[in-house]
Design a binder for these strands. Structure first.
Lengths: 235, 235
DNA sequence: CAGTGGTCTAGACCACTAC
DNA sequence: TAGTGGTCTAGACCACTGC
């Protein structure tokens, strides 16, 4: 095989194999050392190609496990007009939710401010991770004021929390403030999704207001290549 | 100076200097080779530290020019409730706009579909770049149907296009469909912002509907570490 | 335990920027 | 032209995963 002397060439070759379907979405790429040998390049070169394709959203890695072909993005309305599970079904994709923890705790300082909590006041804190078609792509960290959501932790927390708020607690009309930014994952967050510390993610923060008062804060971290947000507005 | 043998240590040291204010926002970091020598590490190690901090949004690079300390993010409402210039002023930041091109052209296929154009129908295409506090952070590519925006290219295109639509063309009520995703910059896009091909960006696509008909498509590419989007919704 | 990616060294040359 | 980051080689050892 003729050596491909630049990482762009290596990337282009892999890209062609992905687009042609030779490498199917979700399948594992050859190991870095195999690629070096097969393409006649150094390992740094091969790795640079991988990082480039990762940036393009064409491949992703599971920490120390290998590189995989990325599936198509998941389209999602961050203002929660529809349930995320319904959205997944509508696009023919499988959504899996796992509860990581649910307990009383004092949240991070930024959340304390938003919820206007007393200094050491605790809230119901729920963290979950979600997989689309078998890949962990979303980490959720939600904080609920106890006075607005009494005995929340005794409920079933594996389904839609939005539906729970509406049906169990009767919050029909909610105002939202949504913030979206690029954000790297912390070590702990990354571990839950099986990716590297610092992996790029989209961070979505939802401030839930009922009668002008903030009763809950929800934070979502989506792997950057897994999601497209779509919403409606007007002027 | 004691050698810092891992890139995490190198990154931590730089991070401390940035947080302490020794390295001020916008200022240039020492060159990679200077850092290698000063800290007693190899250049790969130093570069890995830079890439790590870049991912954290703490520093950014101008292509082949050097590394700089990143300023704080710019907060912005993508549904355009307010003019971006007003938002900038409200946060005490300086916004500069440069018109890159304004001409009739046939847009990319995806835009043709959204605007429901005839096969080779042209639209008014406007591209601009914008700087916040002197750093180019935003590239805009806008496409306007000629029948909805006649003689648009003869107007002043350096100000708010939203205001122009409202005042000159009388579009008071507009529905928007907004899509937000992570996206790497193409070579050409990257050049306009003086960054590397493939740099991570947030892509914002705005579909402007008047009476249920799509009359304009606006695409924005923001450098990933420069922006936080904030919007309001309700259920 | 074998295989993977993650980290690291000590060099080298190239393309481009700023002056 | 000097200095920058961008690319590349040919190795090495480590930490972790999966069997």
């Amino acid at each position: 095989m003729t050596p491909l002397s630049t990482y762009h060439a290596v990337a282009a070759r892999l890209q062609a194999e992905i687009r042609s379907g030779e490498l199917a979405p979700g399948s594992k790429l050859p190991s870095e050392r195999q690629l070096c040998e097969r393409l006649g390049v150094s390992r740094v070169n091969a790795r640079d190609a991988m990082h480039y394709l990762e940036g393009q959203g064409l491949i992703y890695r599971l920490n120390r496990r290998g590189w995989y072909v990325a599936p198509s993005v998941f389209i999602y309305d961050p203002t929660r007009s529809h349930s995320i599970r319904d959205e997944a079904q509508a696009h023919g994709r499988h959504l899996h939710t796992e509860l990581l923890s649910a307990r009383q705790e004092t949240p991070p300082q930024a959340v304390v401010s938003l919820l206007q909590l007393a200094p050491r006041e605790a809230v119901a804190a729920i963290s979950r991770r979600r997989a689309v078609d078998g890949r962990w792509v979303l980490l959720e960290l939600c904080y609920f004021r106890n006075d607005a959501f009494p005995r929340l932790l005794e409920e079933d927390l594996t389904g839609s929390l939005t539906a729970l708020a509406r049906q169990r607690y009767g919050y029909q009309h909610r105002e939202l403030v949504v913030r979206i930014a690029s954000s790297p994952l912390s070590e702990q967050q990354a571990q839950h999704l099986h990716v590297r510390d610092g992996s790029p993610a989209l961070r979505l923060e939802r401030e839930v207001l009922v009668d002008g008062r903030c009763v809950a804060v929800e934070r979502e971290y989506w792997l950057h290549d897994a999601i497209e947000m779509q919403l409606r507005g007007h002027t």
